[in-house]
Simulated scan of single mutants.
Amino acid sequence: MIEAAMIWNEPNNKSHWDMEIDPDWSLYADMVIRAGKAIRDVNPAVTRILGGMSPIDPHWVKRMRGHGALDAVDVVAVHGFPLDWNLWSIHDWPKQIGEIEAVVPEKPVWVTEVGVGSFGAEEVQVFGIDRTAELLIGRVPRVYWYSLFDLPQEWGATTRHREAEGSSYYRHFYMGLIRADGTPKPALEAYGRVAGDMGLMQWFHFEDPRLDDAVAWMKRLGVRHLRTGLSWADSFRPGAIDWFDRQMEALADFDVTVTFCFTPEHLGIAPHHTSAVHEPQAFADFCAWMIDRYASARAAPPIARTA
């Protein structure tokens, strides 16, 4: 059920990686190298993805090459939100892709998050889907729309900036095709026209009550490709494996790109989910464990946790 594994999420964005601890990303690159090897050793058929960058930055990709991280992945991924956060036009998507292709021509580029929020006007989101589809479907091998559901405001967004972003922070809660109360937005119909060619990116929180509804909606829309996450931090919660098993079983009918990220506080150099870790092999071991459990190359039942 896992066709690809992404090694962290937006590692060049301070909302997801603490650059004060790791200013040159050498610690992150070490994690990529170890995790890439671990995933390959368990199942060489799983595509390994360098954590989707945001902002799109060819200089950061060159830095990753210098650290040797590109040798441990098969795909380079980008995230873009030109009508909400990025300081470039939505019409510049081909240019943004081309800048990354120019510095890493030997690997495909996937767009593993692209989205347009309805914070300002729901009609803008409809335009965003239509224009994104025109520009990216057929231009890159994979495109994932973020997201299916609005983030409930009472949950809060995973970001270091929070209200300091001003109105930009509140855009986090309007990126879905379906409102937090379960009612569809106009953009849902527009997405449905391209769902077979444009995947969805949907985070599921620990024991997320929206899981079954998400699966029903995705099947109704004709979604084939899904990107989601398995949280390293959540793996230490009581009942984590029951939740992971339930989540992955529910998603078994989709081609899943799973994102491995979020540092357990007790393993970080700082006690925060964005921190680099004291023992990077521990993250690689988590990745290997998840691939072995949900995408093993062996015809075997899921393994039990040993550590």
Score class of each variant (00 low, 15 high):
1 M>V: 10
1 M>S: 11
6 M>Y: 07
7 I>W: 12
11 P>H: 03
17 W>D: 08
17 W>E: 08
20 E>Y: 14
22 D>G: 12
22 D>S: 15
23 P>G: 08
25 W>M: 15
28 Y>A: 06
31 M>G: 13
32 V>E: 09
34 R>P: 04
48 R>L: 06
50 L>M: 14
57 D>C: 00
61 V>A: 14
66 G>W: 04
67 H>P: 02
68 G>C: 08
70 L>A: 07
73 V>S: 09
76 V>M: 13
78 V>R: 02
84 D>G: 09
85 W>H: 13
92 D>A: 14
95 K>M: 09
98 G>P: 04
101 E>Q: 15
105 P>D: 10
116 V>T: 04
116 V>Y: 00
127 F>L: 10
128 G>C: 03
131 R>W: 01
132 T>F: 00
134 E>G: 05
137 I>K: 05
141 P>W: 08
144 Y>E: 05
144 Y>M: 15
145 W>L: 02
158 T>W: 14
162 R>L: 13
164 A>Y: 10
168 S>V: 07
168 S>Q: 13
170 Y>T: 02
170 Y>F: 14
171 R>V: 03
184 P>N: 14
189 E>R: 05
189 E>S: 11
191 Y>W: 07
195 A>C: 02
203 W>C: 00
204 F>T: 04
210 R>S: 01
212 D>V: 06
221 L>W: 00
221 L>V: 11
227 R>V: 06
228 T>N: 04
231 S>Y: 06
234 D>Q: 12
236 F>W: 11
239 G>P: 04
246 R>W: 08
246 R>N: 03
254 F>K: 05
259 T>E: 10
259 T>Q: 09
260 F>D: 00
270 A>N: 10
273 H>G: 00
277 V>W: 04
287 C>A: 15
291 I>F: 07
293 R>M: 11
294 Y>I: 05
299 A>P: 00
304 A>N: 10
